[in-house]
């Protein structure tokens, strides 16, 4: 669950990336956060992952208060969520299997548990047959699915994707969105950040529109203006 109240973020004392944002996302929801470039979407993500701290307001994610969060608690907060980026952020010299395994390995899990969970998420994203390949040998869509598998492997309560389809063609984009929908139906909260309106319009989901650091619209249904 995400609960932001009056959250602002100012960079370098004058760049106002977020201005008093109120946002609640309940467990099991599927939410799009959209808005033009520079609207503050990535800043919002960074606040949720405790990469940056709000300049004002209170923020809580999966039971962790993000204001004044101790550095030693951050890893544990991050294990409650899976994050997917536009540029995938995979380690090129490691196999698909090891890339996905990393997220669970860092929790101190044993090899048997790692194998079971990695095999199972690779099956979900349809990449079991490419487990031994390395990311550069895969297509963009496949790499994105590896990243999604990695985000899923810890069975997190929450998945956040920042522009996950930015590097994908329309067909792969649809595929990826279907995957997120499937993940959401399995009970995981899904937050997809995007600036592509077409992605949003295809699905009847809650849409939060962000512009210039403010939430201008928060409603269910496609985004048409």
């Amino acid at each position: 669950m995400i609960q932001l109240t009056g959250v602002s973020k100012t960079y370098n004392g004058y760049i106002k990336a977020l201005r008093s944002v109120d946002l609640t996302v309940e467990d099991g929801e599927f939410v799009f956060i959209i808005g033009p470039s520079g609207a503050g979407k990535s800043t919002l993500l960074k606040i949720l992952t405790a990469e940056v701290e709000p300049t004002a307001g209170t923020a809580e994610v999966n039971g962790y208060s993000l204001v004044g969060l101790k550095a030693s608690d951050k890893p544990y907060l991050r294990r409650t969520m899976g994050v997917v980026f536009q540029d995938f952020r995979l380690i090129d010299k490691k196999t698909v299997y090891e890339n996905v395994a990393l997220a669970i390995r860092v929790t101190g899990a044993g090899n048997r548990e790692i194998r079971e969970k990695v095999d199972s998420v690779l099956k979900i994203v349809g990449l079991s047959h490419k487990a031994k390949r390395k990311p550069p040998e895969l297509s963009g869509g496949e790499q994105q699915r590896v990243a999604i598998a990695r985000a899923l492997v810890n069975s997190p309560k929450l998945i956040i994707a920042d522009e996950p389809t930015g590097n994908l063609d329309p067909e792969r984009t649809k595929e990826t969105m279907r995957l997120f929908n499937q993940i959401n139906r399995m009970g995981t909260t899904v937050v997809v950040i995007t600036h592509e309106k077409s992605v949003v319009n295809d699905m009847a989901k809650r849409v939060v529109y962000l512009e210039n650091g403010c939430i201008l619209r928060d409603a269910t249904g496609g985004y048409n203006q």
Partner: peptide, 16 residues
Amino acid sequence: REEIAIMKMVGATNRF
């Protein structure tokens, strides 16, 4: 450092 950033993102402790 890229790899370290990824590790941090997926919840690795500094110890790990």
